[in-house]
Measured scan of single mutants.
Amino acid sequence: MAAGGDHGSPDSYRSPLASRYASPEMCFVFSDRYKFRTWRQLWLWLAEAEQTLGLPITDEQIQEMKSNLENIDFKMAAEEEKRLRHDVMAHVHTFGHCCPKAAGIIHLGATSCYVGDNTDLIILRNALDLLLPKLARVISRLADFAKERASLPTLGFTHFQPAQLTTVGKRCCLWIQDLCMDLQNLKRVRDDLRFRGVKGTTGTQASFLQLFEGDDHKVEQLDKMVTEKAGFKRAFIITGQTYTRKVDIEVLSVLASLGASVHKICTDIRLLANLKEMEEPFEKQQIGSSAMPYKRNPMRSERCCSLARHLMTLVMDPLQTASVQWFERTLDDSANRRICLAEAFLTADTILNTLQNISEGLVVYPKVIERRIRQELPFMATENIIMAMVKAGGSRQDCHEKIRVLSQQAASVVKQEGGDNDLIERIQVDAYFSPIHSQLDHLLDPSSFTGRASQQVQRFLEEEVYPLLKPYESVMKVKAELCL
């Protein structure tokens, strides 16, 4: 049975990233139509530049190519590739079939990587351009969430054990800070992308030097003109047959890092959902379990974690691919890159769409948070109580021993009897502590235990987050809708 299948058929496997999760716009960027249309555009740009620099290419040939950029006979191309065992030459023939007058000058002087690699770089750039505003929107939604809850005390956790208090907004800023680093890295790697350009079979530009009869300047002009037509500021000066596969490492490393950030955020949300302090959106008709109707599973956060793990592992592909590119190139890269580049971007696209949807509907339960604080705060307040007693004339050592005994009794009630923490009640009825009984409410005010959390939130948002989001103001209103 021949390899390949009808990918629109229910009898043929289709990647869930495309069929179930990723956005239509990201799927289109990695589609065959987008790819092969870009090949034709690159052939047109090459012909236009070659004509401008004096090669015998007519206006009629150029116009014929322009008129057929979208006229792609995919069936013919597939048949040609089956016959020739070469995808680029299959599309040269297919393009030439609908451009008979231009057929002889299509791909003039070029090698397969002229269309293959340059198209990949265009796709990487455009895919990054799709991700950047999506990530900015996630940051914006979380920034709104953090600002609104900047002063809401909550129990902090280290080692997932109760620690000092923080605020809900401050905790959210930990998430935002990681995503801001990801946004900066995505922008950097996007701006650092260079075009492969017009380089020939081993990167020496020998074929173009021959076409222009040894004119170095025209060869350099050709490279520059096509690079500018493709919208790049610069091209690699040095290439082998391909652009260095280190570029793929750079791009997928940034995406993998984004995956790590999203995994951490969504894990926190899942843990908070278990504590009943916070939940992701839950639709009115949504079913959490087929057997347990009360369940409210954090399905979206779980999906993000599941896909983020996949995204983090994909960076190993370009690392290994770059390491086995012998001399000017081997074909070890080809099949692998067809999979890992598309999957990385479709996965990143999915987790950003999902995280935006989550961040637009996060639900906080202040009463649950308050109750958990009441359970733990008495123990945390013991040092403040000791200091207040010393100020009232008591002995630190005597007070410490009193607190120690009462704390152990209260802990026994919590752990052995399943009761509430009654340390404060014990202190309130103990005559030894009568000098500070009137101060206990103040000493137990949760806001006095959150330090500068709310001020940190305000400063972080104003100095770091809002300036970073400013270039994306025009796209901030787009909502994230999930079908599944």
Score class of each variant (00 low, 15 high):
N421K: 03
F30G: 01
A381R: 05
L307M: 13
S306K: 00
E462V: 07
P281T: 01
A127G: 12
Q41E: 11
A235M: 13
L311S: 02
K134I: 03
H310Y: 05
Q456W: 04
W45T: 09
E302T: 14
S31T: 07
T154E: 07
N357W: 08
A77I: 13
C340M: 05
I436K: 03
V262L: 11
S323M: 14
S359R: 14
D223Q: 14
D216A: 12
T354G: 12
E228T: 06
M181G: 03
K101E: 14
I339V: 08
K101W: 15
R338I: 04
V198Q: 10
S447K: 11
L271R: 00
N384I: 12
G54N: 06
E277F: 06
C98Q: 11
V115A: 04
I62M: 06
T38H: 02
R234T: 11
Q456R: 05
E302M: 05
Q161K: 05
Q285P: 08
I269M: 07
T267P: 01
S407W: 00
Q458F: 07
L443M: 05
C399A: 12
D11W: 14
L211K: 07
P24K: 11
D117Q: 00
Q416D: 10
K415D: 05
L346M: 13
G231E: 12
A22W: 14
E277G: 01
Q221K: 10
P293I: 08
A49C: 09
K82W: 08
R234M: 15
V219T: 10
Q221V: 05
I358M: 14
E64D: 06
Q375C: 09
M26S: 04
F157Y: 08
H93P: 02
I358F: 07
K66I: 11
G4Q: 15
S395E: 08
T244C: 09
Q205M: 04
E148D: 12
A90P: 04
R196W: 05
R452G: 11
M292A: 03
A47Q: 12
S12D: 05
G393F: 05
A453N: 15
D248Y: 01
K134S: 06
L42Y: 10
F433W: 03
K218W: 14
K218D: 01
Q221N: 14
L272S: 10
T267L: 05
A256I: 00
H437E: 06
K246R: 07
L423G: 03
A344N: 00
S31P: 03
L17S: 11
R371W: 00
V363C: 03
Q409G: 10
F232W: 07
G109F: 01
A431L: 11
A3C: 14
R396C: 04
V198G: 13
D445S: 15
A273C: 12
Y21R: 00
N71P: 10
E250Q: 15
L377H: 02
T267Y: 10
C483Y: 06
K284V: 09
S112N: 00
R337Q: 05
L183K: 08
R396S: 05
G116R: 05
G5I: 08
G8A: 12
D332I: 01
S67W: 12
R83I: 08
E60R: 09
E280R: 01
L108V: 08
E48I: 14
I106H: 01
Q205D: 07
Q458I: 14
L482H: 13
L271T: 04
A291F: 00
G288N: 03
R83W: 09
F95N: 05
E376F: 12
S438L: 13
D333K: 00
L186F: 12
L155S: 04
R234Q: 03
W326N: 08
E148N: 09
G214P: 12
V324L: 14
T239L: 04
Y472I: 15
G200D: 00
L362S: 08
R234Y: 06
E213H: 09
G231H: 12
K276M: 06
A381H: 14
S31I: 00
Y13S: 12
R20A: 08
C305G: 10
E302H: 15
K246C: 06
N185T: 13
I62D: 00
K199L: 01
T313R: 05
I122V: 11
V405I: 15
R194W: 03
A431G: 10
V390T: 04
F208G: 07
E70L: 03
R188V: 08
R20I: 04
P471W: 14
K479Y: 12
V465M: 08
L42E: 04
L319H: 00
G5P: 08
D333S: 00
F236T: 04
R188T: 12
T267C: 10
L142M: 09
R337V: 02
L258S: 06
L275C: 07
L341G: 14
A146D: 06
Q375T: 01
R245W: 00
D420P: 09
T354E: 09
D223N: 09
T204K: 01
E70F: 14
D182Q: 02
Q416G: 11
E220A: 09
T382R: 02
T38R: 03
P318Y: 00
M387G: 14
F327I: 11
S447H: 14
M299I: 03
I249S: 03
L183R: 05
Q210G: 12
E213M: 05
L193Q: 13
F195S: 08
N185V: 15
W39F: 06
I373W: 00
T154R: 04
R20P: 03
G361A: 14
D11Y: 05
H217Y: 14
T202V: 06
D59W: 04
E81R: 06
K391S: 11
A2N: 10
A136E: 15
M380S: 02
R33I: 11
S12F: 12
G109D: 08
M389A: 07
H97Y: 12
L423Q: 03
A143K: 00
H442R: 12
D59N: 07
S257I: 03
D349S: 09
Q63H: 05
Y432Q: 10
C304N: 14
C173P: 02
R426K: 13
L186K: 03
R270T: 00
P298D: 09
T227Q: 07
E383C: 06
Q416M: 12
A480R: 06
V368T: 05
D87R: 00
V368W: 02
A348C: 15
L55K: 12
S323K: 01
V413A: 09
H91S: 09
R374Y: 08
L423E: 08
D422T: 05
I269A: 03
C173L: 05
L183Y: 10
F433L: 06
D430L: 03
A127K: 00
K218E: 05
R459L: 13
R296V: 07
S407R: 00
N71V: 11
H86E: 07
H7K: 13
E376L: 02
S257N: 14
K224R: 10
S434M: 12
K264G: 05
N297L: 01
G156S: 10
T227V: 06
T321H: 01
E481G: 15
I72D: 11
K82P: 10
T167N: 03
R452W: 11
Q320F: 08
C99D: 05
L130P: 03
G259E: 02
C98R: 11
K101Q: 06
S306P: 06
P467W: 09
D178F: 07
Y34I: 11
L155C: 03
E328P: 00
L252P: 05
F379N: 04
D129A: 09
M76K: 05
D248W: 02
N353V: 10
F327T: 12
A136C: 15
R338M: 02
K391L: 06
I249C: 07
R33K: 14
Q164V: 12
G54M: 03
A102F: 03
K477F: 07
A411M: 06
K75S: 15
C483F: 10
G96V: 14
T201D: 10
A77N: 15
G104W: 12
T244F: 05
K415R: 09
T201P: 09
A3W: 15
H217W: 15
P293Y: 07
D73N: 03
W43R: 02
G4W: 15
S434P: 08
L55W: 06
W326K: 03
S395C: 07
P16L: 15
S289Y: 03
D333T: 04
E280P: 05
L355S: 02
